[in-house]
């Protein structure tokens, strides 16, 4: 393994660790739920992405051929992290958690009733007119 590739790998590994840590730090020290939501969805996802790229390069360099598994895991995390963030924000609005930002009232009121069937799922069943 050459020096340049080792520096690149170390840089990716350390920055992955730093981003993962910052995500959890945000989860711990921010002051209301809605701002806490930002740390894990963004910083942690990028941190794990960095680590996965590092792992892919590492297995490529150690002679087993470039490994492409990792792309699948990071792709999966990039698709699922926003979905869970959206659902958790929706649940928090539903429970009317207090927020540092003014909660919206008139233009798009959060659901106070339980909507059945749920309209938020992107491919769940045929369209239904809400009125």
């Amino acid at each position: 393994m050459s020096l340049a590739s080792e520096i690149l790998l170390s840089l990716l590994v350390v920055s992955g660790g730093v981003f993962t840590f910052i995500g959890s730090l945000g989860l711990w020290r921010l002051r209301d739920f809605y701002t806490r939501l930002h740390g894990p969805t963004k910083a942690t996802t990028l941190g794990v992405g960095c680590l996965l790229i590092a792992s892919s390069i590492h297995s490529g360099l150690s002679g087993d051929g470039l490994s492409v598994h990792e792309i699948l895991v990071s792709l999966f995390l990039f698709i699922t992290a926003p979905v869970s963030a959206h659902l958790l924000a929706k649940a928090a609005l539903h429970r009317r958690l207090e927020s540092l930002a003014a909660l919206p009232h008139d233009p798009a009121p959060p659901p106070t009733h339980v909507a059945l069937p749920d309209r938020a799922s992107p491919c769940g069943g045929p369209l239904r007119d809400g009125t």
Binding site: Y34, L37, H38, T41, K42, T45, F78, A81, P82, A85, H86, A89, K90, A92, L93, P107, A108, P110, P111, A115, R119, A120, G130, T131
Partner: peptide, 15 residues
């Protein structure tokens, strides 16, 4: 959700 420091929270009933 992933980009400019924002999280989408709720889609209104009429989309």
């Amino acid at each position: 959700c992933l980009t400019p420091g924002t999280v989408s929270a709720h889609l209104s009933e009429d989309r």
